[in-house]
Amino acid sequence: MLAFSEKSIVKLNVNGENVTVMINPSYTLLHVLREELGLTGTKPGCENGDCGACTVLVDGWPIKSCLMLAAEAIGHQIVTVEGLKNAPIQKSFVENWGFQCGYCTSGFLMVCHALKNIHPDANDFVIEQWLQSNLCRCTGYGEIKNAVKAVLENRI
């Protein structure tokens, strides 16, 4: 049984590397990624599960890191935006003007990246279902749609 009663040093697998980090059982994964590991590409937007800015991949699936304890992540593979290495979706967001202020971008990238891996043949309904988990206040979503479709259709 995994058990932590207080601040403890634990191993997390983040972006393909095992890292040792001090966590408090009450810390969210979002907090630990940003404050303890300096991975500030993952953003807080609401800390309530509503906006998706904090989305990371856990074992390949998108998860809102504000609603996950860091302790829960032990034994799982975490990928943050910093762990996307030249993923097609990144280029596609640039080429399709998929962002303005860029604050929501990491979260959208993670959802799109997972979608491409899990459902490479996703239709519009599925794309919408996945991407509705995230909010963007700058764009009108049109460019984001172009960006994700370009990747799903292997045009990037």
């Binding site: 300096g38 500030t40 590409g41 990144q90 640039v94 003007w97």
Partner: peptide
């Protein structure tokens, strides 16, 4: 013209006020 900071914004490296820990 693609914005100058574009690639920083898709890699999580563009820093916002609260990103300086």
């Amino acid at each position: 013209i693609v914005r100058k900071e574009a690639f920083n914004k898709v890699t999580g490296t563009a820093k916002y006020t609260d990103d300086f820990i």
